[in-house]
Design a protein around this nucleic acid. Structure first.
Length: 105
DNA sequence: TGAATAATGGCCT
DNA sequence: AGGCCATTATTCA
């Protein structure tokens, strides 16, 4: 299961809205070992408000398929993971990012 | 159809 | 540094 297949799945996914599809595609466009902020994603897909991005990612039907853990806040905060903003979720995301080779504070 | 929610960001105090 | 407001998409009733 590589990113290419994931992209195909997202493009063929008809159970999601166009907005979510854009978000997922933009997220897949992010190279491994790199992170992106909600605002950056919004700018790429043309969403003026990053809150909608969080909604789309939180309700993402492709939890493990789309690297939602690669999305972080612009404030230096890790944001959330799997619909939770608890420190546990943050630690999990941090671990995943570290595994990808992302170095953050 | 309408109201409430949310994994944010930016501005003000 | 802390707190509050603004704006959008999704979901539930």
């Amino acid at each position: 299961m590589n990113t290419q297949n994931i992209r195909t799945i997202v493009e063929n996914a008809n159970n999601i809205t166009d907005f979510q599809r854009k978000v997922y595609l933009a997220l897949l466009d992010v190279p491994c070992g790199k992170t992106i902020s909600y605002k950056e994603l919004g700018e790429r897909i043309g969403c003026p408000n990053p809150r909608a991005i969080g909604q789309a990612l939180k309700r993402n039907p492709f939890s493990p398929f789309v690297p939602c853990h690669r999305v972080i806040s612009s404030n230096g905060n890790i944001g959330g993971f799997f619909g939770k903003t608890d420190v546990k979720a943050k630690a999990k995301k941090l671990e995943l990012l570290q595994k990808e080779g992302v170095i953050l504070k």
